[in-house]
């Protein structure tokens, strides 16, 4: 396996607070890789540094051998690395189709071609029936799917998914998991941030554990989750009982 995305020594701090310190891992082509860790471990900050929303203070991000750290988000997107947002950001003044069409314009300059591409993506995700619906009235599960549809319409090689399953019911989450697996089977590489351990163990080939902004461990998901330090980070180690 070759590393499609290579995160190398990323550091980021906000004032005196160190959010990320020397974070390094590699995402092999065709993998579903999970970033897990307790609240405040720096998962979303890491995503922001990879996708260009924030500039890392230190380190490099290589995508297909090319350094992308510090590029503007729209450049990174056009290189083939698309992301979704944990807090959904639909274009509320537009229909579902128009939302996806905006993204399709990243690959097609002309309106009809972009629209055809957007319709194909919606049909692929089983969302064709909502094409004309106003994005402003969608529920949270549909908005999450819209986030994925928009990201896919930019024809990415790597998809960054930020807590896609938070707040969904079990049925909705299971359907979305199936969809994510189907995307991987079509050749996409997926890096996702997830809070829930069961989801990660069901979905991810590999996992990185972040704790207080540093990589705790990295490897095949089952091995990572079995690691005692990971369980400590999540559950806390047994405190000595005061007598």
């Amino acid at each position: 396996m070759t590393a499609l995305l290579d995160v190398d020594g990323i550091g980021k701090s906000f004032g005196g607070l160190t959010a990320l310190r020397d974070v390094a891992f590699q995402v092999p082509q065709g993998a579903i890789m999970g970033i897990i860790g307790p609240n405040g471990a720096g998962k979303t900050t890491l995503f922001n540094c990879i996708s260009g929303l924030m500039k890392p203070d230190a380190g490099r991000v290589r995508f297909g051998g090319r350094e992308i750290q510090g590029l503007r988000p729209h450049r990174i997107c056009r290189l083939g690395l698309a992301r979704t947002f944990q807090i959904v950001r639909p274009f509320r003044g537009m229909s579902v189709l128009e939302n996806v069409k905006v993204a399709a314009f990243a690959r097609h300059d002309r309106g009809p071609a972009a629209e055809a591409h957007a319709r194909a993506v919606l049909a692929d995700l089983g969302m064709a029936h909502m094409a004309a619906t106003d994005a402003g009235i969608l529920g949270v599960a549909e908005l999450r799917r819209l986030e994925i549809a928009r990201a896919l319409a930019t024809d990415p090689q790597v998809l960054l998914l930020d807590e896609m399953l938070a707040g969904l019911t079990a049925t909705e989450a299971a359907a979305l998991c199936d969809q994510i697996r189907a995307l991987r089977d079509r050749g996409l590489t997926i890096l996702l941030v997830e809070h829930s351990v069961p989801v990660v163990s069901a979905l991810c080939d590999r996992a990185v554990v972040l704790n207080f902004g540093e990589v705790l461990t990295e490897g095949p998901t089952a091995a990572v989750l079995a690691d005692g330090r990971v369980q400590d980070a999540y559950l806390g180690s047994a405190a000595p009982c005061p007598t």
Binding site: G52, P73, C77, A82, R89, G93, V102, R150, T154
Partner: peptide, 22 residues
Amino acid sequence: AKTGYYWRSIRDNEEAAEALGV
């Protein structure tokens, strides 16, 4: 055309627009 879609995406959410290649 593309311009109008990009304008409206910026109006509705700048960060999402930029992440989608605008």
